[in-house]
Design a protein around this nucleic acid. Structure first.
Lengths: 235, 235
DNA sequence: ACCTGAACACCGTTCAAGT
DNA sequence: ACCTGAACACCGTTCAAGT
């Protein structure tokens, strides 16, 4: 029984298997684990290095800098997502595609926030874009419109997920708005009549209901908004 | 002449006018100045304090923490923006309102990024919301739709501005996409046929053209998407 | 009440030196 | 080529002590 369960004894090679040789994949893996357990704030070079039993400097062989690291995490998360839908009408498929993407980002709001600025790259993201274009094309959306629509759709989903971020617990954002609305109502019922009147309505609905409605707005808008080559000159 | 121009002598009350008494307004002012000259990255407690000839700890009397500080900066920026439009049709006014808001955020993409998560508060933001609701109401948009639409519109503008952020120079984002598209074309012309075919189209247009089109999509969508009270139960 | 210096617990990144 | 320790130049926040 010597020190078989002796926690204080230094870890032998047997117990900690040879200290994995440090690959980019391994680094990203550790990063994703930390992200899922402790949030993006803890995903630092130093912390990842510590989990890998090395110094932060060692990571710079595999990732250029922190931004690069984050972009790669995003790619990895997309890879872990559900497979893309193949059944249903083009519109059902489109909604499913965007909802699936949204689900990943809603589960990792900090990543969503990041995605606002760091463009995703990698095969999984491109397959998603490809599928969206395919659905739009099947829906009879003209190529020029579809080309711009992908961006609008994906950005909207990302923004939606990013909004539900923040360091606080679930309903904090809405609560802040509610408190605020109340304060406004007290301060000046006359200055902001519309806000006072629609205050409750503005806070109504679940996240999912609003998300779905937003998608409908976008798709309906896309179906009703031609892209004039550049019609800003004439009246 | 004693030490009238003696740089090494400690600054007297006359030369540095009494060291402004440290108000919240003064703090935010310095923060905005640093933001405009050196970017959000330099807007740190320590740096602001240094510009104010004090220690970082002193700021905590006036701002709760860094997030609070940032939210107040945003409010200040909104206050510096152009006055809200009062002329034109409801739709023209709506577009003008959103374009004006967008302009502020496009000039400060880092703030836009921040706005994705930190909800703006303050009189200027509310006046904007109020005006949007007013325009939508005049446009015959039903109250429940208008209430949700404000959010979608503002979030979309914010997201649009945030996208053009990033630490790099102007066209970096698109360039990355282009490089990427090229890589895809080489790697697998067969796996992503739609992307390859629409690659150029996806990168076409100026930021303003895309922004305006996006607004049209949204408004058209809003005009064509009713809000069923909660119709997800029935088929 | 407001202000301050010093301390605590962190960061990213670089570099010379090792293997 | 890969890895490392140490160093550089920073952070936010707290706290006891001053005024």
């Amino acid at each position: 029984m010597e020190h078989e369960n002796d926690i204080t004894a230094p870890l032998s090679r047997r117990e900690r298997p040879a200290k994995t040789p440090l690959t980019r994949e391994g680094i990203i893996d550790v990063a994703v684990t930390i992200l899922e357990n402790e949030g993006l704030g803890k995903v630092t070079m130093r912390r990842i290095a510590a989990d890998l039993d090395t110094g932060a400097a060692s990571l710079y062989v595999y990732v250029r800098n922190t931004e690069d690291l984050h972009a790669r995490i995003l790619d990895a998360l997309l890879g872990r997502a559900a497979p893309l839908p193949r059944a249903g009408s083009w519109r059902e498929r489109l909604v499913a595609l965007l909802t699936g993407y949204g689900t990943v980002l809603f589960e990792h709001p900090e990543i969503a926030r990041m995605t606002m600025t760091t463009h995703p790259v990698g095969p999984h993201y491109f397959r998603l874009v490809e599928s969206i274009l395919e659905a739009l094309s099947e829906g009879g959306v003209p190529d020029p419109v579809a080309a711009w629509a992908v961006d609008v759709l994906l950005a909207s989903v990302t923004a939606s997920a990013a909004e539900h971020s923040g360091p606080s617990t679930t309903g904090e954002g809405s609560e802040a708005l509610a408190v605020l609305a109340a304060r406004i109502a007290i301060t000046s019922g006359e200055t902001y009549p519309h806000i006072v009147r629609l205050g409750d309505e503005m806070l109504s609905g679940t996240g999912m209901e609003r998300f779905t409605w937003g998608l409908d707005v976008l798709i309906n808008g896309i179906l009703n908004t031609p892209r004039t080559p550049s019609a800003s000159a004439s009246s």
